[in-house]
Write a protein that binds this DNA or RNA. Structure first.
Length: 290
DNA sequence: CGTCGACCTGC
DNA sequence: CAGGTCGAC
């Protein structure tokens, strides 16, 4: 039995763990006895928000290591007050910012993130979860902590061995023809995802889009949710609709024009703005699939 | 260059 | 219909 680090991390900044985890950024996390249970830095973590901070439990030798991992995952070093202050200048964001106070961008593993969002193509959140879980269940390492068991996302090398036919059997549908070469390309080291973190946003985006199945939207999700490019602005059908309705009087605008507008309008934290626009637009549409 | 259909499957 | 992408006009 691995040693377990248990503890409390004080958090004195806007944070809503539930909203952040259940806002369609991560797909393996689940609730378990009032805790959230999910993958964190290659291990399994339990997190629970309580008055003044977070309770945590994780397999590890050191509390410091766990706290560092939580900090990274929840992006607790982002200048969140400054970000929120900037976004509040936009009247369309004031209400969603207030109603979803503490909704944060998460920092997940780039491979896990890219794979998840390729699976997200033309699917809804329950479907995405089911695909990711099927993949992980088939060839991912089984993690466990207490009573909570969780299959990890298979690494690219392992996934590359599975083959397109099996991926279809696992329920990926046409996405199998993207995921199979994606795994093979990453496994072969042709693109080093981690190294994109230190490249400019546009360059990292172009590199990601060399991959089959990675278009603008999927690339932007990987950039914001895993590669620290908070200026990227993932443009899905919901956000596109929100922008057209709220800022352009319902007029249809080409994506590149929306991107240029977002860059100008939201600046370096467009990724955060997108998350609030998305969240609000989904709620207004009466969805409850979070 | 913009536009359009095909692509899997499940709720 | 669902948090797109690709390839063919």
């Amino acid at each position: 039995m691995a040693p377990t680090a248990l503890g409390f991390l004080p958090v004195a900044q806007p944070l809503d763990l539930e909203k952040s985890i259940e806002s369609g950024q991560v797909f393996l996390w689940r609730r378990h006895d009032g805790w959230f249970c999910g993958p964190l830095g290659g291990k399994i973590a339990h997190l629970r928000q309580v008055e003044g901070g977070l309770e945590f439990e994780m397999a590890s030798n050191s509390q410091e290591e766990v706290i560092a991992a939580i900090h990274a995952f929840l992006r607790l070093n982002d200048p969140i007050e400054e970000i929120l202050r900037q976004l509040q200048a936009d009247p369309h964001l004031r209400e969603p910012l207030q109603r979803n106070h503490g909704l944060r961008i998460l920092r997940q593993d780039p491979w896990e993130c890219l794979l998840s969002f390729v699976c997200s193509i033309d699917a809804n959140i329950p479907r995405i979860r089911s695909m990711i879980n099927a993949l992980a269940g088939h060839c991912g390492q089984e993690l466990s902590l207490g009573e909570c068991r969780l299959p990890a996302i298979p690494n690219p090398e392992t996934l590359a061995e599975v083959g397109e036919a099996k991926l279809r059997e696992l329920g990926l549908g046409f996405r199998a023809k993207y995921v199979d070469p994606l795994a093979k390309t990453i496994a072969a080291g042709e693109i080093d995802l981690e190294s994109l973190r230190s490249r400019p946003t546009d360059e990292a985006r172009k590199t990601l889009m060399l991959l089959k199945g990675v278009g603008e939207k999927v690339a932007d999700c990987a950039l914001v949710f895993s590669l620290d490019k908070l200026d990227a602005f993932p443009l899905d059908r919901w956000v596109r609709r929100a922008v057209q309705e709220w800022y352009f009087d319902g007029e249809a605008i080409p994506d590149r024009a929306i991107q240029a507008w977002a860059k100008e309008h939201f600046g370096g934290y467009a990724g955060y703005a997108q998350q609030y626009l998305f969240y609000r637009r989904r709620l207004d549409a009466g969805r409850s699939t979070f």
